[in-house]
Design a binder for these strands. Structure first.
Lengths: 203, 203
DNA sequence: ACAGTTACATACATATCTGTACGTATCTAT
DNA sequence: ATAGATACGTACAGATATGTATGTAACTGT
């Protein structure tokens, strides 16, 4: 009885399977330990491989983490960020963002965003730059919505739109991750925090 | 002309001066790079010493960081946390906490709290335990205030008091640090976030 | 079937960090 | 003044991390 594993795989299937396993392991590791304490040895072992496999798929630690960030960006954009472009009431869009983000953060790898952002804050590193750019883009979208809402009267006046958007996303991210797993209050409190930052009355 | 420095120091003065310099350097390092990327070599050099001096004053990296955390705890309790025990309107006390914390976070070492909390989240480490205990204590105080406010009617009903307190402090910490240096909006938005979490109407 | 490519493991080189042992200069007490 | 304690520097040892070079087994096209 030899190790006849996985019913014979093609190279492409093998590659994708390994790559995904390594990415998931890395995401979990970043969420738990951050970038600095992320050991490629542990990432590979936890995924069932050695560092050799990892270096075959990714040029190095940076590229691995960049791939993780890219994956998070994609899933976030699909599951959360799409409400920013659905044209409708700006205030409703931002509140929907809060609820969607709270749900997104229920998965244990969501902390990747927050961990890396803090770790690379005000630092000159490719990972930090990618994170900063991604966040900046989202902040810009939110600021536009806030300005639109203030124009049409659905959002009260307040600090500059961009500063408000910055606070909104910061509070939302922190609350959603901190309260992940405390359903259903995670959604409620995320929405409350966003309402407060926007100056909206309680629901 | 020999290096006749500092007008002749006593040993006790020397010790305190060196210790404070090392603590401040470490605090700045943690705020910027976190614990894992905190090099004792850099800490000592930046303070004008070598690692020898550091190891003479602190048993090791952990004890140094614990001392930094202790220092932050003390200054925070004196400048921010005291409003939690000043008996008065619970809602007003929590809003005062928000404003005080925003002001506290304007100093560049305030991020020590947030960085270490995230880095040692769900981890078995002396530093993590101290942080967790400190935060836990503050959360408990806030939860008590929330319950009192809900009893006397100054705070609306909502999710469990402890969960609400958790969200309140998380949002407050994140917003205050993110917006530090954006005066005066840092105070305004910190208070807005707290109002929102508590379910209070905008000011 | 066989040559070439791909996926992965193993072994090695190197850098960096912590911690310790020890040396030296400065202060203090008798 | 001198012996001892204290503050600090220097040198070394061990652990652990990344990255690279190389070996090997599995798959693929002709």
């Amino acid at each position: 009885m030899t190790t006849q594993q996985h019913t014979r795989l093609t190279q492409a299937e093998r590659r994708i399977r390994s790559r995904n396993a390594l990415l998931e392991s890395a995401a979990r590791g970043i969420a738990q330990h951050g970038y600095a304490n992320l050991s490629l040895e542990r990432v590979a072992t936890q995924a069932g491989y050695t560092r050799g496999a990892l270096y075959h798929q990714f040029a190095g630690k940076d590229e691995l983490v960049l791939a993780v960030v890219g994956w998070v960006k994609e899933t976030w954009a699909a599951e959360v960020g799409q409400v920013l472009t659905d044209h409708g009431n700006p205030a409703d869009a931002l509140l929907a963002l809060a609820r969607n983000h709270a749900i997104y953060c229920r998965r244990d790898v969501a902390a990747v965003l927050l961990n890396l952002r803090i770790e690379f804050d005000s630092q000159d590193h490719p990972v930090g730059r990618l994170i900063a750019e991604s966040i900046d883009h989202i902040v810009t979208d939110c600021a536009r919505l806030i300005e639109a809402g203030r124009t049409d009267g659905s959002i009260p006046q307040g600090p500059p739109a961009r500063t408000t958007a910055d606070a909104l996303l910061t509070a939302l991210e922190a609350v959603a991750i901190e309260l992940a797993g405390q359903a259903p209050h995670d959604i409620d409190l995320a929405e409350r925090a966003v309402r407060g930052v926007l100056g909206l009355p309680p629901h």
